[in-house]
Structure formats: structure tokens, C-alpha cells
């Protein structure tokens, strides 16, 4: 009889091999657009990449990335959030961890796995069981008072991205004050302005992320 213990190499499982980065934020803030903009930049920097998406009621984000032509569709995994976008990245991240592990088995050279949250509110945060580092994406159209509300997502993320900076004059947002307040509530930890659709600020996001988790 062969037993599990005979075959077990070391008992408890070791930590994941690839760096894992979470990208969270409110619905519509531009998380998928940021990932679409990041993928070519990361490829340019030679990063072996995969993505896990958490769609709330459809597989739209996963399908959007798979059809984008930016990344091998096999490198995009979809995890349903069971109506609980908080739970799947924080209280019970096991489905996401398993999806990441499975990508590592299928693509042994993968260096970086991005986990896109299904869209949530300002209270969402990533479990450090799941990711090594995480980004929270808000946008100027959501209101320049978001940083002042001091949501856990805004405060605790490793990098705060304020997206859709180009919309500021159209939605009556005083962008400099929004950035100043964001930096103040975050204790001067990183805040980057982006316009993901046009690529503005995306290289800075990529470099900040890579410096934190790969180099």
C-alpha cells in the first residue's frame, strides 16, 4: 500500500512561487482597464504573467481579457465570487489561491499573477494569505471625497491608484486637492494618478509594483 505520507515531500505546503498582486476597488473604477494597460507594459519588461478575475454575476471581465488579444487566454482564470466580492479575496480566498496554484502548475515559469477583485466598496481589502502586495483603484468620477472617507481599501493598500484623471475637469473634481488628501490619509505611501485608457501613469504603476514584488 502506498500512503500519502510516503509520497509527501515535506508536509505543509510551501509558499507560492510567483509573486501575487491584488487589484481591488469600487465597481467601474477601471480595474480591468488598468490590467489591460498593464499587460503590454509588463510584457515589455519581460515579466511572465497570468491573471485571475473575480466576476460577481458574469464572466465578463475574464472574457474581456481573454478576447483582448493581449494575453494567452489560457493564462486567464475566472473565479466566481458567490455574491461575496469581499469574501473571495479576504475571509475565504481559497478558491483564488487554488486558481493561482493551478496557473503555476500549468505555467511553471510564471513570475507574477494578478488577482482582479470583482468590484466592491471602499471597505474591501485583500487577505495577505492571497497576495503579497495590492493595489486599490478609485476614480475621480466617483467623487473627490473618497480619500477623506478613509475606507480601509484606500488606507491599507500598498498602492492607491486614482484613475480617470482626465475626467476631473468634467466632473467638477479638484484633482490636486484629492491627491493631497489621499497622500495625507495614507501617511505619504504611494499614490499614482492614471488614465488607464490612454496609458498615462501605467508605466509608473508597473514599475512600482515590480520593484515591490519582483526586484
Amino acid at each position: 500500500m502506498s500512503t500519502l505520507d510516503d509520497r509527501a515531500a515535506g508536509g505543509a505546503e510551501g509558499r507560492a512561487a510567483a509573486a501575487r498582486v491584488g487589484i481591488g476597488g469600487p465597481v467601474g473604477s477601471g480595474k480591468t482597464a488598468l490590467i489591460e494597460a498593464l499587460i503590454p507594459v509588463l510584457h515589455e519588461r519581460g515579466v511572465d504573467l497570468a491573471v485571475v478575475t473575480n466576476d460577481l454575476v458574469t464572466r465578463e471581465d475574464a472574457e474581456r481579457l481573454r478576447r483582448s488579444g493581449l494575453i494567452d487566454p489560457q493564462r486567464v482564470s475566472a473565479v466566481e465570487a458567490g455574491a461575496c466580492p469581499h469574501t473571495v479575496i479576504r475571509e475565504d480566498p481559497t478558491l483564488n489561491i487554488a486558481a493561482g496554484d493551478e496557473l503555476e502548475v500549468r505555467f511553471p515559469g510564471v513570475e507574477l499573477i494578478l488577482f482582479e477583485s470583482g468590484g466592491d466598496n471602499l471597505a474591501s481589502t485583500f487577505s495577505l494569505d492571497l497576495v503579497d502586495w495590492w493595489i486599490f483603484v478609485i476614480d475621480v468620477a466617483g467623487g473627490d471625497d473618497i480619500p477623506r472617507k478613509k475606507g480601509p481599501g484606500t488606507l491599507r493598500c500598498d498602492l492607491l491608484v486614482i484613475n480617470k484623471q482626465d475626467l476631473a475637469p468634467h466632473v467638477g473634481v479638484a484633482l490636486p486637492r484629492m491627491v493631497e488628501e489621499a497622500r495625507a490619509v495614507r501617511g505619504q505611501r504611494p499614490v499614482i494618478l492614471t488614465d488607464a485608457r490612454r496609458g498615462a501613469g501605467v508605466a509608473e504603476v508597473a514599475d512600482t509594483m515590480l520593484k515591490a514584488v519582483l526586484f
Binding site: L4, D5, R7, A8, A9, G10, G11, A12, E13, D92, T94, L95, I97, A98, D101, E102, V105, D129
Partner: peptide, 27 residues
Amino acid sequence: RNGLAFLTAHARIGTPSAAELKRQVER
């Protein structure tokens, strides 16, 4: 999928046999 997620938690915890079961499932 539920079984693999269950194993994922136990493998991280270090429950005997869970990590090896997870490897067998992943392969």
C-alpha cells in the same frame, strides 16, 4: 473545485496529507 479549495486551506495549515492530496489533484 470545492474539494481543491478545501485542500488549499488545509495544505497551508499543514494538516497531515493535505498538501500531497492537493498535488495529486493538481496533477
